[in-house]
Design a protein around this nucleic acid. Structure first.
Length: 266
DNA sequence: TAGTCTGTTAGACA
DNA sequence: CTGTCTAACAGACT
């Protein structure tokens, strides 16, 4: 589900709800979500004070007073919400923060994961974090050129988390529409100027989506079809906000891509 | 029933 | 070695 923007919204919520506090109760409903570490270690970490909530790409990282850290990845349908009920539908993990409520890791498809690490060194050795490319605001033209061969599609390169951290399938459609890139453009077809525009647009795009998504519960686009905040994503058949041409959908790199055939032509 | 889905990864193939 | 595609993970929805 979530891309960088939605994970960042959850991170900011945890900053308000959880940092500086400890959980008074931890309920593991589905321990299959733990790959590194077990439920006892998770209870030990969460039972201590959360010192810091950070984000790296689409990963959310909590550091605790015990020196342990907990990493969340929401995959397709995971999220963390605050509610008064410890076990709403699809709850896989819940912890109680007194005076705040229950924080619940909900995940309908159960693809999300939670990892527990004993200390900073173990966290840093976690392979997905070790492999992660720079955050969008730290990407340079030289880095992109070096990481993408000329014949590779820009879309698949951007979805590769080792090249840029946090970009997902929605962001690609939206960025390409903003920049008027054709959906199947190859890296080699872009000038340095084009890449510089892309690099400048990424943080702008994510900041705008974060602002529009802020709230106690992030709504994914399929849960809020009538309030779709995107310009082209999931808008096939509707008018392009720029030129009124009908938006189309096609598969690029195995994933749905939405685009305006006029704005984003050759 | 078949197709789809905001993510990631392993294996097949050109 | 590179890049792309598919399936798999698991479940709900159309």
């Amino acid at each position: 589900m979530p891309e960088l923007a939605e994970v960042e919204v959850v991170r900011r919520n945890l900053e308000r709800w959880w940092v500086g506090r400890r959980a008074s109760k931890v309920c593991v409903f589905d321990d299959a979500l733990l790959e590194q570490g077990d439920a006892d270690e998770l209870r030990e970490a969460m039972g201590s004070r959360l010192d810091d909530a950070s984000r790296r790409g689409k990963y959310l990282i909590g550091r605790f007073a015990t020196a342990q850290s907990v990493v969340f990845h929401f995959r397709m349908t995971g999220k963390i919400i605050r509610c008064d009920d410890a076990q709403p539908k699809y709850a896989r993990l819940a912890w109680r923060i007194d005076d705040v409520g229950w924080l619940v890791f909900k995940d309908q498809r159960r693809l999300g994961v939670v990892e527990v690490f004993a200390d900073e060194r173990n966290l840093r050795n976690y392979e997905p974090l070790r492999r992660m490319g720079p955050e969008p605001e730290d990407v340079t033209v030289d880095h992109l050129r070096g990481a993408c061969s000329d014949r590779r599609m820009l879309k698949t390169a951007l979805l590769d988390q080792s090249i840029v951290a946090g970009v997902g399938n929605i962001a690609v459609s939206e960025l390409f529409w903003r920049l008027r890139f054709t959906p199947e453009v190859k890296c080699g077809q872009l000038t340095d100027e084009d890449l510089a525009r892309l690099i400048a647009e990424m943080p702008t795009y994510f900041d705008e989506i974060i602002d529009k998504s802020m709230g106690d519960e992030v709504m994914y686009v399929d849960e809020a079809e009538l309030d779709n905040i995107f310009s082209v994503y999931r808008r096939a058949g509707q008018a392009c906000p720029r030129c009124e041409t009908v938006i189309e959908k096609k598969r690029v790199g195995g994933r749905s891509t939405y685009f305006c055939p006029r704005c984003q032509g050759e």
